[in-house]
Simulated scan of single mutants.
Amino acid sequence: MIDPAPDQTPSFAAGISLGRRAVAEFVGTAVLAAVVIGSGIAAEQLSPGDIGLQLLENSTASAFGLAVLILAFAPISGAHFNPVVSLADWLGGRRRRSGLGTRELGAYIGAQCGGAVFGALLANAMFDRAAVQIATHHRVTGGHLLGEILAAAGLIAVGFAAGRHGHRVAAVAVATYIGSAIWFTSSGSFANPALTLGRMLSDSFTGIAPASVPAFVAAQIVGALAGLSLMTLLYRPAAGR
């Protein structure tokens, strides 16, 4: 997910073109959006009226799907699937002259947002709903925004630490964290501006009304910066290195 160690090579294979990495980010984010939204729609149909069971079904599918996608795409693009992860990678690499470059950051974020929108449309269509919908679930409260800050901070911290041990460890750690954060945060742990954009286009259990999106994205960015700051402090090289 993130390559924090100054003596490690990037998490994606050296020499892979930006175009191929952008395709991997588009496809991976699209499938992730389809998993998250599709499992939410399925949960509504399978367990009508039981919000707790719907959340269990959605969180289980989301965690398993994310783990598989990280394993599949990390060797190609690093498996970010999330603009705040890419932003943290870019910011974390400025001092070491590593990580994503500015042009790569723009390509990653564009691919992730496009993929999330495509995945949302695909999920809606799979369940015979109108492909383009506008969510009506308003989510912004002080508690929800605090939950998003915590969710994004934890995601970056876990990804930063686990990424030091390779993408297999990161896949398990990040997926497990997201699966649990869907339960322990009041916001449901969106923690991803691209998926937030995609979820705006599905009026389902996992949707978010357009009016709630700007505040959620702002909270996610704040949380990501907090998580990156903490991990930079904790993993700062010892004096003399």
Rank of each mutant, 00 (worst) to 15 (best):
I2P: 05
I2Q: 14
D3S: 15
P10M: 06
G15S: 02
G15C: 12
L18P: 08
L18E: 10
L18H: 06
G19Y: 09
V23R: 04
E25C: 07
F26S: 04
F26M: 08
F26G: 02
V27M: 02
V27T: 11
G28Y: 03
G28K: 09
T29C: 13
T29I: 07
A30M: 13
A30C: 11
A33H: 07
A33Y: 13
A34E: 12
V35I: 15
I37T: 07
A43K: 00
A43C: 12
S47Q: 10
D50G: 02
I51P: 06
I51E: 06
I51Y: 02
I51M: 08
L55V: 05
L56C: 09
N58A: 15
S59Y: 08
A61S: 14
A63C: 04
F64D: 01
F64H: 07
F64Q: 06
G65D: 01
L69W: 14
I70H: 12
A72V: 13
F73N: 08
A74M: 11
S77T: 08
H80T: 06
F81W: 09
L87A: 14
L87C: 12
A88T: 07
A88I: 03
D89E: 15
W90P: 02
L91E: 11
L91A: 15
G92H: 08
G92S: 14
R95E: 06
R97F: 14
S98Y: 14
G99E: 08
G99Y: 06
G101K: 10
T102F: 15
T102M: 12
R103C: 04
G106Y: 10
A107G: 08
I109E: 11
G110A: 15
Q112T: 11
Q112V: 07
F118W: 04
F118R: 03
N124P: 05
A125K: 14
M126T: 09
F127K: 05
D128E: 15
R129P: 00
Q133I: 03
Q133S: 05
I134M: 15
T141D: 13
T141Q: 00
G143C: 11
G147E: 04
E148D: 13
A151M: 01
A151F: 01
A152V: 04
L155D: 00
I156L: 13
A157S: 14
A157W: 04
G159V: 00
G159C: 02
A162K: 03
G163F: 01
H165D: 06
G166W: 07
H167E: 13
H167N: 11
R168N: 01
A170P: 12
V172I: 12
V174Q: 03
V174L: 10
T176E: 00
I178P: 00
G179R: 09
I182R: 09
T185A: 13
S186V: 11
A191Y: 12
N192L: 09
P193T: 06
P193S: 06
P193Q: 10
L195M: 12
L195Q: 02
L195V: 03
L195C: 09
L197P: 06
M200A: 15
L201E: 07
D203L: 07
G207E: 05
I208F: 10
A209Q: 08
A211E: 03
S212F: 01
S212T: 07
A215W: 13
V217F: 03
A218K: 03
Q220N: 10
I221S: 11
G223D: 04
A224T: 05
L225P: 05
A226V: 14
G227H: 10
L230T: 00
L230F: 11
L230A: 15
P237Q: 15
A239P: 04
G240C: 07
G240K: 02
